[in-house]
Structure formats: C-alpha cells, structure tokens
C-alpha cells in the first residue's frame, strides 16, 4: 500500500491520533511527553503511533502535512498541531471540547 494511503488509513481509523516519539507511558522526547500529558488531562480516549517503530511513517509524515517535527496531533484526520499548539489549546480550554466532540462522534 502506498505510504500516504497507510497514513490516511490510520487517520481514518482514529478520530484522535497523536504521532509521538515513544509511547504515552514512556515518551522519549520532552515535547511528546508534554503533548501526551495535555491529552491525558482532557480525559478522552486517544490513539497513538510510535514513530520510532516505523521509519517510513516517520519520514512520510513530515511531508504529508508539511510539518517536519513530532509530536503531531490529528483530530478527524486534520492536523491540529505540534506540542506548542496542543499545550496552548489545553491552557486556553479549547482542547478538551475539541477532543470530546471528536470522540463522541466515533
């Protein structure tokens, strides 16, 4: 399968999906760790993908969304942002309703 179709398939399968370095319990980068902490604090379910386990996904995601760094949070297939944006949205109270709406529809 074409790599972009694989990524699209992952995004279709999960309304809230975060691509991170490591896992939510053992993040291997401070930025992934902070973004995951914000998601956990919202209390909604989310899926994750450890980009260290798939170099093809890791490289292709950089061009898929013109976003060269990780983490990358997607809600309903749309890039929400990296650590800065996710944390800003958490602090401003925007993140929780966004995630609640996305997971309620699923």
């Amino acid at each position: 399968m074409d790599i972009n179709e694989r990524i699209k398939g992952q995004l279709d399968a999960h309304p809230v999906l975060i691509y991170i370095k490591g896992t939510p319990d053992f993040p291997q980068c401070g930025f992934s760790s902070q973004a995951v902490a914000a998601l956990k604090a919202c209390g909604t379910e989310f899926a994750y993908f450890n980009i260290f386990e798939d170099e093809e996904v890791r490289q292709s995601l950089k061009t898929y969304s013109n976003w060269p760094t990780f983490p990358q949070l997607y809600v309903n297939g749309e890039l929400i942002g990296g650590a800065d944006i996710v944390i800003d949205m958490y602090k401003s109270g925007e993140l929780k309703p966004l995630l609640e709406e996305a997971t309620a529809e699923a």
């Binding site: 013109n66 976003w67 760094t69 890039l79 942002g81 944006i85």
Partner: peptide, 23 residues
C-alpha cells in the same frame, strides 16, 4: 495557527533536517 507554524518550518527549509531538532 497551523499554517503559521508551517510557514516558519518552510522558511527553515533543509535546516529542519540538518540543524534543528525542535523549534
């Protein structure tokens, strides 16, 4: 917001691969 970040990343060009881990 997302587009702003993308614009900044685009301006960094290859430096995102060769010089910058995180911005």
């Amino acid at each position: 917001r997302v587009r702003r970040h993308q614009m900044v990343y685009a301006a960094m060009g290859d430096m995102m691969q060769t010089d910058i881990h995180a911005l």
